[in-house]
């Protein structure tokens, strides 16, 4: 089957790596692909929480690399989707428990059985990040339209190019339609101009994502949500489809427009 290994990283923390990993995993699985999502944030795992699979963890990635269990035993099947699995991180160890070589070996073991291996990278540029990108065939950089996040993304892109893991593609997360419309936020064009890499998706800011993370139900399972649609579009682009980008400015619904009209009046 020869899986494609995709690492999702950002440099800065809190920009949405875990959200993106969980939702792309769900979206790809809903498109009929066999998918594993791997949490490489050893010591600070939370992909399992975002996916609502925390209470099913028995073995984790360190148990596999240290030979305490077989890979198959550590994979947790997400029952809401047909072929989606989670390989959780260890919570009681740290980043040095796994080496880049371990990660390459682990991913090679999974290549035959799956279409996609998605690796959720920890924030930062230290060993956890090195581990996460070592096996990558492709890298997705998540950033928000804020200067500090874009700065860190730039640094990360430089490191990825040095490791010859590029070209990376960019996901712009938490774009606020309101603020973009009034020119109070970096626009997509601003971010692309600075980073000069290909854009693969724009995720609009949506409170429903926060709710979904808290509940452990990825938003991509909701087919009526705009952010969910944005993740599904990225999944289709990963499969090579040409999908037009959502027009973020169209986003506010009738009620929001009405409220704004009243306020202005």
């Amino acid at each position: 089957m020869a899986a494609m290994v995709i690492t999702i990283t950002s440099g800065k923390g809190g920009v949405g790596k875990t959200t993106a990993t969980a939702n792309l995993g769900v979206a790809l699985a809903l498109l009929g692909k066999r998918v594993v999502v791997v949490d490489s944030d050893i010591g600070l795992r939370n992909l399992d929480v975002a996916m609502g699979l925390e209470n099913r963890i028995v073995y984790d990635i360190v148990d596999v690399t240290e030979g305490y269990c077989r890979l198959r035993q550590a994979l947790i099947r997400d029952k809401r989707v047909s072929e989606l699995y989670l390989l959780p991180a260890a919570q009681t160890r740290d980043k040095t428990a796994v080496s880049p070589e371990d990660m390459v070996r682990l991913c090679d073991q999974m290549r035959d059985d799956f279409n996609f291996v998605l690796i959720d990278s920890p924030a930062g540029i230290e060993q956890g990040f090195r581990n996460a990108i070592a096996p990558a065939d492709e890298v997705l950089i998540v950033t928000t339209p804020e200067v500090p996040a874009v700065r860190d993304a730039d640094r990360i892109i430089g490191l990825i190019e040095a490791e010859e893991k590029g070209p990376a593609s960019l996901i712009i997360n938490r774009l606020k339609p309101e603020m973009v419309r009034y020119g109070n936020m970096l626009t997509t064009a601003d971010v692309i101009e600075i980073l000069a890499i290909d854009l693969i998706g724009i995720i609009p800011e949506d409170e429903a994502i926060i709710v979904s993370m808290n509940k452990g139900i990825p938003i991509a399972l909701d087919d009526a949500n705009r952010a969910s649609l944005a993740f599904h579009n990225i999944a289709r682009r990963l499969l090579g489809e040409e999908v037009p980008f959502l027009d973020i400015r169209e986003m506010p619904n009738l009620i929001e427009r009405f409220v704004r009209f009243i306020r202005q009046g």
Partner: peptide, 24 residues
């Protein structure tokens, strides 16, 4: 090439960069 955040060029002579020098 484009110099990204964290990358440094040091050279005792003149330096010409064909590309951007990003913040950082």
């Amino acid at each position: 090439c484009t110099l990204r955040s964290g990358q440094v060029i040091r050279h005792p002579g003149h330096v010409v960069v064909i590309g951007d020098v990003n913040a950082g």
